[in-house]
């Protein structure tokens, strides 16, 4: 109960507005700017995550990712879930790197090579790794 004469507590309107405004500003700026990472070349052209690139031509890219240990092809389907294989076929670079790290760890001491090439809808066939050199440290 508020007694007569007690100064009334006024809600800190300014503080509320500031917190709200900062939150809104952060959301708008982040969401507006994050997709730029794709266009500024920070991301690999096949990595469209967080860029809102719905129905882009990248969706139609088909890649071949093949690892060999001492010249013998490693059957990736034996070690990785088929969903990872699908991401490899889309050429997702971070997944290729992750699989590469795992393959290097499981084939330590062997010469591991990677063939990583893709076919784009514009007919270009970029080769990101031609399988001629070892990819493991």
């Amino acid at each position: 109960m508020i007694h007569p004469g007690t100064p009334r507590r006024v809600p800190s309107y300014t503080a509320r507005v500031n917190r709200r405004d900062l939150f809104i500003l952060a959301v708008v700026l982040l969401q507006g700017l994050i997709p730029l990472h794709y266009y500024l070349g920070v991301s690999h052209p096949y990595d469209e995550r967080f860029a809102w690139r719905m129905f882009s031509e990248t969706r139609l890219v088909k890649c071949q990712v093949q690892f060999k240990a001492d010249g013998v092809e490693i059957p990736l389907k034996r070690s990785f879930h088929s969903a990872w294989i699908t991401l490899l076929k889309r050429g997702r670079p971070s997944v290729v790197e992750g699989v590469q790290d795992r393959v290097c760890a499981t084939h330590a001491g062997q010469e591991v090579t990677l063939l990583y090439r893709c076919r784009q809808v514009d007919g270009e066939d970029p080769v990101f790794n031609d399988g001629s050199t070892s990819v493991c440290p």
Partner: peptide
């Protein structure tokens, strides 16, 4: 506003000759 941002960047994606030629839409 978030949806507006999504539509904006999705439109940017489509403003490419490859998409506007219809070659991307056709197989999808």
């Amino acid at each position: 506003v978030q949806l507006a941002i999504l539509y904006f960047w999705t439109a940017v994606t489509k403003a490419e000759p490859q998409f506007l030629s219809g070659e991307v839409l056709q197989p999808l």
